[in-house]
């Protein structure tokens, strides 16, 4: 019987052997089924979306990914603008959220007075519980006017005429666009990254830090030479958890991104994201090709997320190999 098990089982106490093995096998089966169910779901979702989008892929071929036209009356659909908008807003979000989140986590584990750690940690977890539509409304009613009146004119004045980055900061300051959406997304993913980062930072063995202190390290040296290297792979994981959230975020982005299928280099100009385009247009997509194109967009989001996570995994493996570790 034990030959069918994939792992060795310690013999139980005499008399309990038979029952213990049955329970063990049952447990193995249940957990394996749960794990396979996730893969099965993932696979079926991907297949269902690819199938739903087959008309769009057949009609436009590779042009569906490289085309920037999204012309409903002419029935011409290209996903370049939503793909670009999705990636760009997520990158801006990470540029903002990663340093802030790591700062929060380090402060809470190593620097903050002990009695403040609990309340601040709870406050950050509560940020994650705020529904995204609330972030969207805050973004539109509070943050976008602030961007339009103060931040964007300043950016255009100071950077708009510079050689390389100039085109990124040109255009009328309307407050709605990729930069605003990216910042709102950044605020949204901070709790995800920082709460994971806090967990892993507090798992660093105190002995390591104490040794560093004993060698006369400053606080900064402890952070940069002990804590961060020790937790590197978990931190990269946390960042990509946040990135996954940013890529798929719909409601908040719809409010502040502008939902315009225009390709523009400027971060101040409105754009579109994959999730926002689907949310906006699905209810009134009344031709087969239109509906199929939106489902195909969903499939592309799936593919984009998959590629990004694969790159993250490879990156992690390379870092670890350089450090001479096995995982």
């Amino acid at each position: 019987m034990s030959a069918t098990l994939a792992y060795p089982v310690e013999p139980g106490p005499p008399g309990f052997e038979g029952r213990g093995r049955v329970v063990d096998r049952l447990f193995h089966g249940v957990t394996a089924a749960a794990a396979w169910l996730v893969l099965l779901l993932l696979g079926s979702v991907a297949v269902a979306m690819a199938w739903g989008g087959r008309l769009a892929f057949k009609t436009f071929g590779l042009g569906f990914i490289t085309g920037s036209d999204w012309d409903v009356p002419a029935a011409k659909f290209g996903a370049l603008v939503p793909i670009y908008g999705t990636l760009m807003t997520s990158i801006i979000a990470l540029i903002i959220a990663v340093p802030v989140s790591i700062g929060i986590a380090l402060f809470l584990t190593d620097i903050a007075p002990r009695w403040t750690r609990g309340p601040i940690a709870i406050a950050i977890e509560l940020l994650a519980a705020i529904p995204s539509i609330i972030y969207g409304m805050w973004g539109l009613f509070v943050f976008a006017p602030f961007m339009a009146l103060h931040v964007e004119p300043w950016l255009t004045d100071h950077f708009g005429n510079k050689a390389i980055i100039g085109p990124l900061f040109s255009g009328p300051p309307i407050g709605i666009g990729m930069l605003t959406a990216g910042i709102v997304l950044g605020v949204m993913v901070i709790p995800f990254i920082s709460s994971v980062a806090r967990e892993v930072f507090s798992a660093v063995p105190p002995a390591l830090k104490e040794s560093a202190v004993a060698l006369g390290s400053t606080r900064w040296e402890i952070l940069s030479r002990v804590t961060l290297p020790y937790t590197r792979s978990a931190i990269v994981g946390a960042i990509f958890l946040g990135l996954g959230r940013a890529l798929g975020e719909t409601m908040a982005v719809t409010f502040v991104l502008g939902n315009a299928h225009d390709l523009s280099a400027s971060l101040l100009m409105p754009s579109n994201s994959i999730a926002a385009a689907i949310a906006n247009e699905f209810t009134e997509a009344d031709t087969d090709l239109y509906r199929s194109s939106l489902i195909a967009l969903g499939f592309l989001l799936f593919v984009v997320t998959f590629i990004v996570l694969t790159i993250a995994k490879l990156l992690l493996m390379r870092i670890n190999r350089q450090l001479g570790r096995t995982h």
Binding site: W70, V72, I174, I176, N259, H261, N280, D286
Partner: peptide, 15 residues
């Protein structure tokens, strides 16, 4: 042209 949605050359879109 005319339609329930057209190819807007400029602007932002609200739902």
């Amino acid at each position: 042209g005319e339609g329930k949605s057209v190819n807007w050359p400029t602007g932002v879109g609200g739902k």
